[in-house]
Simulated assay, not measured.
Amino acid sequence: MTEIPAPPWGPTRKRAPRRVLSQDGIIAAALRIVDTEGIDAMSMRRVAQELGTGAASLYAHVAGRDELIALVLDRVRAEIHCPVPDPERWQEQVKDVMRQARAALAAHGDLARLSIETGVPTGENAMRTAEGVLAILAAGRLPVQVCAYGVDALALYVTAAAAEEAALAFRTGVTTAGKDDFLAQVRDYYKSLPSGQFPVITGMVDELMRDVGDERFEFGLDLLVSGLARHAAPAAGE
């Protein structure tokens, strides 16, 4: 049946606005899904549903899920800010940037566990952060190769710490009570081990299971930074 035109005196209907897609909008939608549903839920189809369009329309802006993950990670890295290098405070500056990086990843659920899988980060924000950290390390009079190894080791540590936090949150239902119950189970298991076979573990269960604020993360961060500091060249006049 042929559709007849509406009479000119009838009510005027507004034409539904056409949704204009952009890479920024796609990244924002993907990040919303990661935050609310987890990284495994973030598929091209799911992102398209979030945007009210078809999955095929996303490929004009993003090559696929792998690229989208890399773009989402780089968007999160925009939350990291590097200071102007201060040779007198370079160690604390590096630690502060690493704290920012951990917080940025931890704020977005289990996104951190895919950071290593994306390979060498090449996004604009990743490059900006790497440049900033390398500049801080160089200001601390570290040899070039030490700077190169250092920025890599620091990134791996922060990513692993954030991924572990996300895995624990997933396992325990992201509640303090759930986390406490799980850690209590681990503690009881360690204590149940035969002390004759595992004397060291059973002798320091409380220390192994200590979980006080950021104490554990800060300990590891201090180990890395103080280790890097051992390679610093003497200052002029020393």
Rank of each mutant, 00 (worst) to 15 (best):
G178C: 08
A28E: 13
I33K: 03
D35M: 02
L111M: 07
F219Y: 13
P194V: 05
L228C: 00
T2A: 11
D35F: 00
G52V: 04
P85S: 10
R128S: 06
G203M: 07
P121D: 05
G54R: 14
E218F: 03
A104V: 03
L58C: 05
L73T: 00
P143A: 02
I80A: 03
R15C: 07
V174L: 09
T53R: 12
V62T: 01
L183H: 13
H81A: 15
S226H: 11
G10Y: 10
R19P: 07
D214Y: 04
M44K: 03
R75G: 00
R99N: 12
M42L: 08
N125P: 02
P234H: 06
N125Q: 15
P83M: 05
E50G: 09
T129K: 12
T176R: 15
C82H: 06
D211K: 12
R187W: 00
L137H: 04
V34H: 02
R77V: 00
L105E: 05
D211L: 10
M127K: 12
L105F: 09
A29N: 05
D206L: 06
D74I: 00
R13K: 13
G237I: 04
D222T: 15
A28L: 07
R89H: 14
R32P: 00
M44W: 03
A28V: 09
R230A: 13
Q197F: 02
P8S: 12
G237H: 08
V146F: 00
R230G: 13
A101K: 08
A130R: 15
E124T: 15
D24Q: 12
M42D: 03
L31T: 08
G213T: 07
E165Q: 15
V174G: 11
A153R: 11
G196V: 06
V72R: 02
V97W: 02
R128P: 01
I116N: 07
R128N: 06
T176V: 11
M1S: 14
E79K: 08
A60Y: 09
K191H: 11
A235W: 13
R171G: 08
T2F: 07
Q197H: 07
A130E: 14
A148G: 06
K14H: 10
V205W: 08
L111K: 01
E215P: 05
R230M: 11
F170I: 13
V200H: 11
R230E: 12
G119Q: 01
V84F: 08
M42P: 01
V144N: 11
P8H: 10
R77Y: 08
K179V: 10
G220M: 05
G196I: 04
L137Y: 04
Y59H: 15
G150C: 04
R89P: 01
V34L: 03
E165C: 02
A6G: 06
P121T: 05
S57F: 03
K95V: 07
S115D: 14
L114N: 10
G220D: 06
G213P: 04
V151T: 14
V158Q: 06
G54E: 14
T176G: 10
G132S: 05
L21W: 02
D222P: 01
D24T: 11
Y149R: 13
E131R: 15
R45E: 12
L58W: 03
